[in-house]
Write a protein that binds this DNA or RNA. Structure first.
Lengths: 344, 344
DNA sequence: TTGAAAGCGTTACCAC
DNA sequence: GTGGTAACGCTTTCAA
């Protein structure tokens, strides 16, 4: 005969399930309500110290961790700020900005969640985000229509903030004036007597949102002048740069705005390898003011971007969340100014 | 007398709340169950086409979006893979790896969520992550003890995978052998006749997890030889590099392993500005095989890192989730080999 | 083919 | 002070 252990003396074999507040209550010999009161330090209700201790001990013993989904379901809201992860690996400038922002929002007791994209577009993506019922959504770059914003708001998002080139109906907007980046570069080059100006356009997908406005800024700045603008597609590879440098003579340019410092470095190296003197034959201007620009010879003239501080954006989000009814705010950010160095 | 509108004829004034499946059911004139069946395409139950249409139309009209928390609460599990966001802005190599991983996990129908750190440490952080009840947790770098892993597993995480230098009890481990990076560099330099070898250690916080093992790798590779190892603290700023370069003579080194390509570029520039010939007087080896190394003159010798593919890691995660009971797997990743160029 | 109802883990209101 | 109970939004079993 098989021995069956007595249930009353032998503990059940490892309850392989996740402990709930009910388990804690059972172990502590109190009700679930009391557990909730103790663990949330509810000040409205006074619980005796011995009870508190028993509850805390039970929670610790079981390794109890509250269930965020259940909590926010009950509460009817969360403090999750959702940010779609960028589709292209972000540069150092953007990464640092995001970090700052996360930190600042954390200080305000929000939880920042970067939601990994799969390839969802526009409103489909908006619906996926809305399922998480975030209290606010931060959208780097555009790619979302007014309907998308409406979906998010209907699903309870109290603030939708876009950081991009154009504003979207219903959403707060931090307008990144990338045209200004191009404009600054163009004005600088023109002022230094350059007239045949090339503009590098990265061939890597996902960068059009920045490169197009930058080009447009150059074009507008030079409109009505005697300067010409030549578009220069360039992939971030040595071969591509070598090809471009090989036909540099026929392009007949006296200067380039190279999209950013990294493309500038790539192109500058290829030109120098081809005997083009910088800035004698051709002036080069980068953008983003990265460290590497200062390390090049000649030192790279660049357009420094003034991004909004993470703290400021965090406060904007917080305000928007608290004051749901206020009309969407549109704020110009991204100042740009040229830092003249030796390449132009 | 104030006119009170008849509730039965006047619709309630804009239900400023989030539409639920009950609202959809009401509008479509069916039960909540039917709504669920239709919207989830439940194949076990057959619903008439007209009903399906009515439900879908109602959902669309209301802008209904299911509530992920409620859904996973009911289901008892989610497909969320949680990844703590790195505390230091990540480099291009890591960013790309994360992107690939997100994409690959998305293909497997997981939702990747990068959880923003605030400053929580160790087990406290583990508890915060556990509240979200992720099905798997991916930990870049260490900073978590076995207790932390236990908390996560008890809260339902079916897989915990660390990507770091050392393994953690109970967790799958992708061991990044950063010592091998240092070893490769050291062997290379020694093979080229260099004996007085400097090793750059970034002063920026958060990089010790990589820099220490790299240094250790150099040390171990040169143990028992006639080579000496000199530690060179360096901040990622021109001034710091200039200071270091200024006392280069007294350091009496014939070579440097510069932690990575960016620090290598910084140091190389400072040395060249001080009249140190590269590689004549001093050889330099970087790491990470970034584009910029190819653009330097002399071209930078570097240690190329072979990170695991995002797809491979995604499959590991998926396996681990499906086969909960299998023992944690420990896998060596991060191959490293020197790409000799002109700086050494 | 559809509907009623239970239950996932929490918290808050209201009795005791 | 403490405990029952209802409700958050959803899925699913069972019954009609």
């Amino acid at each position: 005969m098989v021995h069956i252990p007595d249930r009353s003396t032998v503990p059940p074999p490892a309850p392989r399930s996740v402990p709930t507040s009910a388990d804690v209550a059972r172990l502590a010999g109190v009700s679930r309500a009391t557990v909730s009161y103790v663990l949330n330090n509810t000040s409205a209700v006074r619980i005796s110290e011995p009870t508190r201790r028993r509850v805390r001990a039970a929670a610790k013993e079981l390794g109890y961790v509250p269930h965020a989904a259940a909590r926010s379901l009950r509460a009817g809201h969360s403090r999750m700020v959702l940010m779609p992860a960028p589709e292209v690996p972000a540069g150092p400038l953007y990464s640092q900005f995001i970090n700052e922002l996360q930190w600042a929002l954390g200080r305000l007791d929000y939880t920042v969640v970067q939601y990994g994209q799969v390839g969802l577009r526009g409103d489909e993506a908006a619906r996926a985000w809305a399922e998480l019922r975030p209290v606010a959504v931060l959208l780097p770059g555009g790619g979302l229509g007014p309907e998308g914003v409406a979906v998010l708001k209907r699903s309870g998002a109290r603030a939708v903030v876009t950081m991009g080139v154009e504003r979207i109906e219903g959403a707060h907007a931090l307008l990144m004036n990338h045209a200004e980046v191009g404009r600054s570069a163009a004005v600088h080059l023109y002022g230094r007597g350059r007239r045949r100006i090339g503009v590098v356009m990265p061939e890597e997908p996902g960068l059009e949102a920045f490169s197009n406005p930058r080009l447009e800024g150059v074009r507008r700045a030079l409109e009505g002048t005697d300067a010409t603008v030549t578009v220069l597609p360039l992939a971030y590879e040595e071969e591509s740069a070598a090809e471009l440098a090989a036909r540099w003579g026929e392009l007949n340019l006296d200067s380039v705005f190279a999209y950013n410092d990294e493309y500038a470095m790539l192109l500058m190296r290829a030109l120098q390898d081809n005997g083009v003197a910088i800035p004698g034959d051709t002036a080069i201007v980068g953008a983003d003011d990265l460290m590497l620009g200062r390390l090049l010879r000649p030192r790279l003239t660049t357009v420094h971007l003034e991004l909004p501080s993470g703290r400021a954006l965090a406060e904007l989000v917080d305000q928007a969340v608290q004051n749901d009814t206020a009309p969407p705010e549109v704020r110009q950010v991204l100042g740009a100014h040229v830092i003249p160095r030796d390449s132009s």
